[in-house]
Each structure stands twice: as C-alpha cells, then as structure tokens.
Nucleic acid binder design. Structure first.
Lengths: 352, 352
DNA sequence: ATGAAAGCGCTAACAC
DNA sequence: GTGTTAGCGCTTTCAT
C-alpha cells in the first residue's frame, strides 16, 4: 500500500517464492511443495490454506529451481531442417499440441544442414536443457558430438532413419514402396514412358523414392532410361521442378507422365510446362508426393501420394512422452512405418 | 578400466559437474566458472589446465543450475496462432536464426485462439522460463493473466498492435495504407467495379485492410457497394476464398477486379472461378496480400502486396535481444512499421 | 500429516 | 589471479 506522501520505496518487486507462500499459509515449504505435487497427501484444511496463499501471492514455481532439483526440464527439443518449405508446418503443429498437453514445452532448432548448428544443439542436450529430442528431418544427424548425447535422453527420428540402430524410435513411411505404388498407378493409367524428378539425393528419402520408381519400371519390364531421370534437385522445392522442366524440353522423345519426389517439385515443374504451353494433364500427366496444403488448390489439383504428417507427429510425440516418463529406458524404442495413400485428383489422365 | 572377471559396477554414469573439472584441473570451481565466462581474467596456464580438464571430462555446464543462479534462461518464447497456414514459416525461420546467433533458444507456443493456452503460456513466462516473449499473431493476446506478466520480461508484438500501450515493441506494416495502394493499383489499371474479400474480421489486420479498400474506393468517388464486400471469411485461408466465389457468382453486375485480404484467400477464390470457366485475369483480375511462397508459383502468378516477413522477423528479434540484454528496461520499446511493396505478376490485367 | 534440513550445480561477492 | 563462501528456489528424505 502506498501511503500519501510516502515515495514509493525503490524495492525491486522481489519475485514471490515458495517461502513467501509457506510463511503466509503458516506451514513449511515442504508442505507447500506437497500440496502442489500431491494434494491428496495433505490435510484438506492445510491444502486450502496453501492454495489461498498461492492465489493471494500470485505464486508460480520457478522453473529453473524445479529443473535443477528434479533433474528434468519438461522440455523437448524438436530439430527441423529449417530450409524453406512448409512441409513441416503441420508436423510441428501436431507435435506442439501433444507435447503441450503432456506438460512439455517445445524448443525448436533448425539444423540448416550445418555441422556447427548440430553441435550447438548437441550441447543443448548435454546441458540437460531438454528431456527428449525429436529429429524431424530427412538428414541423418551427422554424429560426432551427437553420439555423446547421454543415453538418458530419449531421441526419436521422423521421416528418416539411421540404419542399424535401436537406440532411436523411428516414425516414417515406406518411401520406396509408396513411390513404386505411385508409378504403378501411372502405369495402370496406360503410361509407358514415365520420367522421375528425384529430390536431393543426399537424403535417404529421395534415394528411396528413386528406388521405388526403378522398382515399378523394372517390374513391368519397361527399360530403365537414364534420360528420364532428371537429377540435380537442390531440394524438395519449386526451383528443382523448374530445373527439371529444362530436361523435359531438351528431350526428343518426351514422356507422357512424370513422378516428382515431392509436391513442390511437381508444382514447379507443372508451372514451367504450362508457361510453355504444355497442357497438364492433357499433354503430360504429373504425380507428386506428400500431399501438402497446396496440392489440392493448384490448377490442376495435384494427384499425389499422401504422407500422414499429422498422425506421424502425434504418434511420435506420444511415444517420446512415454519414453520420457519412464526413467532410464524402461520402455523400448519403436519403429513405426505408416502407410501412404494415393490421392487421385486432376493431374493424371488415362492414355490410349 | 574393467578388470577381467570383475563385473561392471552398477554405478550410474554420474553427470560431470564443475566440481569434477575443478578437481581434475587442480583449481577451485570459481576458477573454472571464470575460465569459461571471462577467459581473459584467468592466467594462461590455468586456463589451459581448465580447458583440458573440460575436454577430458566432456563437461557441459548444466543449464538449470546456471539459470537458477544467473536468473536468466537464455530462452525466448515465440507465440504463434498455430492455425493452419504457413505464412509464419519464414518468420519463425528468421527469428530462430537471429535468436540462436544471439545465444538464445526458441521455445514455441501455439495459442490456437484458446484462452487456456494463453494462460498456460502466461504461466511459462511467470515461471521465469524465458527471458523474453515475441507474440507473432494477428490476435491481440486476451489479457487477464497476461497483464500479470512481470515487467522484467520484455514482450514484443509482430503483425499486430495493442493500441495505446508503450510496454511492447511493435513490428508491423501499414495494413490500411498498403491495402489502399493495392486497390489504387487496380484503379490505375482501369478497374472501376472492385470487390473485396476481407479476412476474419475479429482480427485488427483484416479490419485495417478492409479500411484501406474503402479509403481507396472513396477517394476516387466510386460508390462503396456493400454487395462487393464478401464477408464471412473464417480465416486467411483457401476456404474463405472459395466461399467468396459463391458471392461472386450470385452477383448480376460482376466486378472486374477483386482485392483479397490474403494470398491464400486469393488463390482459393481464383481456383473456384477457374473451375467454373472464369478466366483470370481475362475475365476477372485478382490481387492478394502477403506474397507467400505460393503466390509466384500459381497459375497465373499472383499480383500481390508483399510484407517483408523475413526482415520483420530479423528486426523484431534483434530488438528483443537488445532489450533482454539491458537489465530492467534500460532500452525503450520501439514501434517499427515497415513498407509493403507491390509485386506485379500476372493476375491483374488492364481494362478499357 | 507435517517440518527440518540437505543439496541439486552453478555464479558472484568478497577476501587474500 | 585465485579460493572461500553463500546462496539462487525448489524437492525430498528422514524424523516426528
């Protein structure tokens, strides 16, 4: 209370601690702590006293002190590639939702293909700043420092896999099988000359999708024509699709259909073709991969292989939540491979 | 060293602390702490001893202990609306980059228009879990708990403003002026009958953009025709644009141009028109707002008003960094309003 | 059912 | 230039 004429004392508004609450409620700090964590183990009257003291003081437990003592920060680190595309937006959404519900905060990190950023985040983990890690990227983390991450912190991988390790949970799709299915669909629509635009081949997913394309071509006995594989994608992005269009126009014997390793590649490719008067799907059919937001809104709406991004995010988060709750690897890691689903829209037509 | 026949002792691999490093280097913990924080204030020989001890032990300072002691977590909270659209992806990218460079981690939170989520994050702030907050959303945070956020934590706003407060830094654009400019451009191309698809009018930005539309129409003396304002957007999304298409088709006297309050609205609208055989821009011109990634790749490429999202992110982060570094409001808040830029592409044609 | 007390790992006065 | 010491705010035995 400020008395008339009395200048406001320069007292810094000291943050209220558990001590203040204890004093006010006439109990010990231990009791306050208990009343918060295990209300049922405190007498009803005491509990009331504590809670009103909390309300009156506006007390909020200090996170750092709690973390220090409890050796748990209630935070997870979500590592994303962080280059451009918005493929990961719904994933991050799902993750944040599940983690927040589970009482965990989400610290994000963009690795940006940079070694120094990876070591930076490895340090974050070693500093005990997070209770778990979710690596959401096509790129297997380059290890070195990463291997020295304490085993006590559970780590999960999404959309890609480190072959031959059981220490991570993995949530991904069968990129190879789904890609083969996409190409098989093209074949079922009568296409025989089918091209492929791979993603950046440094990533496992892109290589798997290329593998699936080859599988499907080979199994029907079509020749595997290298001139129909338009490499050189820098990424899963529009620009890669536009670049591939050059390969298309350079070709004498043009394909009737194209399987792009990602929707954005497909969209960039389609745009480049339309600009030069090539009709889609009248002249060339196109199928993508991912089913991102824009696929359905493009003209023509893109036929594509859907990855269940939201579901994968939810499952991965729930698994990590479970593993974090179990002290010391009480719960084994899981490998979950979800099915993709062909979404037929307008960009593929039947020929013959 | 494991001796033959001796079973591995069940010792938990105790995390290495500053104590271990001190012991190994033959110095006090204070010296280790100093060698890390202010290397120049420690004798070269000692410094070397400390650093090799650190290397040998693989020591990483514990974040919680440091935060508790230093009363600073080196983390910021970035609050996003978290509903669907990927408008914020590049913003988040820019923020993460600048904050990480500045030595801060980024905790994300999606408010999802939910009061309980806002109070949740208010609690995170009060728990001292972050040193600063960036509210990146068109929605002014509903206050209540929020006002009780301690003044010691600097808060900044992006893309929207709380009128009449100096306690936040604000980074936004002149939505009204830029919208008026967009409509003026349409007028300059000979359009006289111009419609508008507003965003969800609960948000300040959407109302400002609507205001700009009205300004531009009025200033040239055109009648302000309510039948040309197609309200009912649930959001800045495709669906809103598709819904607006119904209004378009229901109209006898059709407009020759449409100003959409966001690119995604514009794209949804265009798609719906094209589906019914209406040519863009041959029959109707469309202009958007934002210049998101897909604007340039659509067919026709969308003419739109660009918001400098990356730059706004960088500036906002830098400002917050500065304010967090200054103890106790040493640095005043700023109001930064960046210019938008008209990006002319293919979706508007000149008439007459 | 509750309290006393120890201590999580670190930093920052303050001495020397 | 370096060490001693006193906590930061909380949880958790261990008593009572």
């Amino acid at each position: 209370m400020r008395t008339l004429g009395t200048p406001e004392p320069e007292t810094a508004p000291r943050t209220v601690t558990i001590q203040d609450v204890a004093r006010r409620a006439g109990v010990s700090t231990a009791t306050v702590s208990r009343a918060i964590a295990l209300p049922e183990r405190v007498a009803a009257a005491t509990r009331e006293a504590v809670f009103s003291a909390i309300r009156e003081t506006g007390y909020t437990p200090n996170a750092a002190a709690r973390s220090l003592r409890a050796k748990s920060t209630k935070m997870v680190l979500v590592l994303l590639p962080g280059i451009g595309n918005s493929f990961f937006t719904p994933v991050l959404n799902a993750l944040e939702e599940v983690f927040t519900e589970g009482g965990y905060g989400v610290l994000i990190g963009y690795t940006r293909q940079s070694r120094s950023r990876e070591t930076h985040y490895a340090r974050v983990i070693r500093a005990g700043q997070v209770d778990g890690v979710l690596v959401v990227t096509g790129n297997v983390p380059r290890d070195e420092e990463f291997v020295s991450v304490p085993d006590t912190v559970p780590v999960s991988l999404m959309f890609s896999e480190v072959p031959g390790t059981a220490q991570f949970s993995v949530f991904d799709v069968d990129n190879r099988g789904a890609s083969a299915d996409a190409v098989r669909y093209l074949i079922s629509q009568g296409h025989r000359r089918i091209a492929h635009i791979p993603g950046a081949e440094s990533g496992l997913e892109a290589r798997e999708r290329l593998g699936g394309y080859c599988d499907a071509i080979r199994e029907v006995g079509f020749p595997l024509d290298e001139s129909l594989i338009w490499r050189g994608a820098s990424n899963f992005d529009f620009a890669s699709g536009e670049r591939a269009a050059k390969d298309f126009f350079a070709l004498d014997d043009k394909p009737t259909a194209v399987f792009a390793a990602a929707d954005e590649i497909a969209l960039g490719f389609m745009r480049a073709l339309k600009n030069r008067g090539v009709g889609i799907p009248s002249d060339v059919s196109v199928i993508g991969f991912d089913d991102t937001e824009y696929a359905v809104h493009y003209d023509p709406a893109l036929t594509t292989m859907r990855q269940p991004r939201n579901e994968m995010g939810r499952l991965a988060a729930q698994d990590l939540l479970r593993r974090m709750a179990a002290r010391d690897g009480g719960i084994p890691t899981s490998k979950v491979r979800l099915p993709c689903e062909l979404v037929v829209r307008e960009s593929v037509r039947a020929v013959e």
